[in-house]
Nucleic acid binder design. Structure first.
Length: 210
DNA sequence: ACAATGATTGGCT
DNA sequence: GCCAATCATTGTC
């Protein structure tokens, strides 16, 4: 039932301690890690290539800035929790909660490189099957696209990342500081000067190359 | 109760 | 490059 690729992912699941540390550090260390989801129609895997850090009461752009509410409640849970929210009424964004419980910090996963279950990702996106290189680059190159391709919505908000069918895994890949670009975050108006966006410099799968 | 807002995307010019 | 879509949450009246 499990493919060799899936078997190789066993015991590579990131422990909750991975997330329970400095948020910008986690944002950088998540580059090269794998997002793995097993749903009805098979296993999906992608390598994270772009992230953004959001802090708590010191970061005006963060949903946690004004303290806990019904929407951001899961953002105040302990590191290793998933925080999913709806943006612009249409798209969902996937965040991994970091730090200790109550700090209200998280990392937004903005883009990824498709690895497994690519046909299903196209189906989830509502796109015709297309294996052209150009199309593949546009499959997961944005937070809303990523969530849709993985079938993630508000129902996943607040789950912990230690599940068999939903986890982050170590792909044995690590990027050095020189390989990681650092810029301001995309789409925000407050705290727009903070350089909390990180992406793999030479990756074709990021949402923007600058 | 109600109006404004937004960590985006896709389609059209 | 510009702009509409679409809705849960939030702040204000």
């Amino acid at each position: 039932m499990n493919s060799p690729a899936q078997n190789s992912l066993r015991n590579k699941t990131l422990a909750s301690t991975f997330f329970q540390k400095n948020t910008t550090r986690v944002a950088k260390e998540l580059l090269g890690k794998g997002l793995f989801v097993r749903a009805k129609h098979g296993a999906l895997l992608a390598e994270i290539v772009e992230t953004e850090a959001y802090l708590g009461d010191e970061d005006a752009a963060s949903h946690a800035f004004r303290g806990p509410t019904k929407r951001n409640a899961s953002m105040f849970k302990s590191g290793g929790t998933l925080y999913v929210y709806l943006i612009y009424g249409i798209n969902h964004c996937i965040n991994v909660v970091t730090g200790v419980e109550g700090s209200g910090e998280a990392v937004l996963i903005r883009a990824a490189k498709p690895l497994l279950g690519i046909e299903q990702m196209y189906k989830n996106r509502g796109l015709p099957l297309d294996n052209s290189v150009k199309s593949l680059k546009n499959l997961l190159n944005g937070p809303g696209k990523l969530a849709k391709a993985f079938g993630i919505d508000l129902q996943h908000d607040g789950i912990t990342l230690d599940r068999k069918d939903f986890r982050l895994v170590d792909l044995g890949k690590k990027y050095t500081p020189k390989q990681i670009a650092k810029t301001t975050r995309i789409g925000i108006t407050k705290a727009a000067d903070l350089h909390f966006r990180f992406f793999v410099k030479d990756s074709e799968f990021v949402s923007r190359r600058a």
